[in-house]
Amino acid sequence: MTRFLLDRVGRLGRFLWSGWVGVAGLALFAAIWQQGHEAYGDFILPSPLTTLQATAELLRADETWRLAQATSARAIQGFLLTAVLGAVLGIAVGYSAAAMRLARPLLTIVMGVPPIAWIVLAMIWFGSSAGTVLTTTVVAAFPLVFANVAEAVAMRDRALEDMAKAFGAGPFQRLRTIVIRHVTGQYFPALAVALGSTFKVAVMAELLANIDGIGVALAMSRSNLDVAQSIAWVVIIVAVIFVVEYGVVQPVRAELERWREAARPWGVRR
């Protein structure tokens, strides 16, 4: 038990320590930004410090938290729906070679349609409601998750399945003990990407369909020509994505992929 806890604490420590590199990257980014600010002036590109102040000001207002919560709730709804639908349909289709072949051109079509077109369609179908946001986020993120899961199931390790069969596992037991574990290797990276795109598309849909949330706040600060506040809203969105990804998605992935960590030889620089 103590070893179990120590393992997790060690992982958290390593993650926090690797944060220094992230801070260095951000500092570099801020330096380039500052250069841009000095070259183009306050109106086009406010300085990083001004933006930070604007962000802090926004964070002090209760309204900001309400808007961020509204947007997050919609995006997370879309994300969860994507995660469940992608996994279930992906597994179902991955098992059948014929369904795989049928699904590929459909995916190409769905992925080929730009999200903005889906927003327009969804607005016609659902009006300015949460349904519009949900539809567009799912349509934008689902194909990626679905394709990854289906591909992983199709590429599953038949040798391991034969082994399971030799020890008396039925089809359902093989799915539960072999296939699903194999699929998670592709599922979580796809989820991490899907998470980012659901938030981005959710904000876009809110902005275009005028649905109360960060998207609308962004549109307002644009019409007020308040560039610092616009960027501050972007900072808040990125922060929310960061919290969800490193607070939920990555810890679950790390827990399921402990064996990959073990495969890493000692002394490899992270």
């Binding site: 034969d162 030799a166 072999i178 402990r258």
Partner: peptide, 14 residues
């Protein structure tokens, strides 16, 4: 019954 294969066929995640 049990079975032993040419490759160990172990589950890498376990």
């Amino acid at each position: 019954h049990g079975m032993i294969f040419q490759e160990p066929r172990l589950m890498p995640w376990a």
